[in-house]
């Protein structure tokens, strides 16, 4: 009886797609009409990329409970890998797609190799190990020209084709949200969360915690790889500086503000935060620009002290839940 009823109700996923397509058409229309000028289009793209990367970190930290301070390193791996690929194969939609896939795959592979040993560590030890990994990666990127001259080392890599456009970002952003939703609301997702909640108890009920920690980490870093690939082809220039420790904190901030373990939270925070930062850049006079960097950590502290769960505190928009649960919520 229950299953029949549920089957006829529209899937919330369908609603999500309708909302998304509506949003896309609206934004594209605004661009054509010139309401959204190229500057704000760029900001919008950046927001989408931040969203993808932050979703990945939320999977790692918010859902699986593994605190990583090295997210930007995987973002960098994706960016450089895809840029190398499109520069070698020549620009085009096909190579961009290939670049994104390759960037994600390489980031995931690196995550797998580094994750196997270090995910054994707990909370702050894991934090400091991932931070160390991020710094090592930055040093390697700084010296990359010694091995691959095209990567440019500390002076940066240029000559990347500008292939990332709004439809690309939108399509991957939407896919990222839907994949994440389907993953989180599944048996696999519950296994991930059980690791976050109590690793020992998870082991005690048959969850191979090493496996699921690695799984969450690898998928989350794969997200970072996708984001990095889109980023590389948005600005056409890469510098190791963009993938340092501060960048990792940036993403962490979005995840924390939006809410650990909430897709909706990351969605709202990624977009709001990117636009706020850029908005302040435009709105504030040059003399007080530096204050942005002061306000930013203050927001972080205030949230930790007064609303550690973030804006959404483990809740979701209705259309991001798979199906209304039976009984009272």
């Amino acid at each position: 009886m229950r299953t029949d009823g549920a089957r006829r109700r529209p899937e919330p996923g369908t609603i999500a797609v309708i909302v998304a397509v509506g949003g896309f058409v609206l934004l594209q229309a605004l661009m054509w009409l010139g309401v959204l000028n190229p500057y704000w289009q760029q900001v919008l793209n950046l927001a989408g990329i931040t969203l993808i990367s932050a979703l990945g970190l939320n999977l790692i930290y918010g859902y699986t409970g593994q605190f990583s301070l090295g997210h930007a390193a995987f973002y960098g791996v994706g960016a450089y890998a895809s840029a190398l690929l499109t520069r070698s194969l020549g620009p085009g939609a096909g190579t961009l797609l290939l670049g994104i896939v390759a960037g994600a795959a390489l980031a995931a592979l690196v995550a797998f190799l580094i994750g196997l040993p270090i995910l054994r560590l707990r909370s702050d030890y894991l934090a400091i190990a991932t931070l160390g990994f991020g710094i090592i990666m930055k040093v390697l990127l700084d010296n990359s020209d010694a091995v691959i001259p095209m990567m440019g080392g500390s002076s940066g890599m240029s000559g990347i084709a500008r292939l990332t456009t709004f439809p690309w970002v939108f399509a991957f952003g939407l896919a990222a949200v839907l994949v994440m939703r389907n993953l989180v609301f599944s048996s696999v997702g519950r296994a991930l969360v059980s690791v976050r909640e109590d690793e020992l108890a998870a082991e005690a009920v048959g969850i191979d915690t090493t496996r699921y920690k690695t799984l969450g980490f690898v998928i989350g870093c794969g997200y970072a790889g996708v984001a990095g690939a889109l980023y590389a082809h948005l600005y056409a220039y890469l510098n190791p500086f963009s993938f340092d420790f501060l960048k990792s904190i940036d993403v962490l901030l979005v995840v924390v503000l939006g809410g650990l373990g909430s897709i909706s939270g990351t969605l709202v925070a990624a977009i709001a935060w990117t636009f706020l930062l850029e908005g302040l850049r435009v709105a504030l006079p040059a003399s007080v620009q530096d204050w942005r960097m002061v306000i930013y950590p203050l927001v972080m502290i205030v949230f930790m002290l007064f609303r550690p769960g973030g804006i959404f505190a483990r809740t979701e928009f209705g259309f991001l839940k798979p199906r209304a649960r039976r009984g009272k919520e």
């Binding site: 530096d290 930013y296 550690p308």
Partner: peptide, 17 residues
């Protein structure tokens, strides 16, 4: 513990900037 750790990073960034 991670909440305090994140706060510590915030304090660090605040002092620097």
């Amino acid at each position: 513990r991670i909440s305090a750790l994140i706060t510590a990073m915030g304090v660090s960034l605040f002092i620097e900037n």
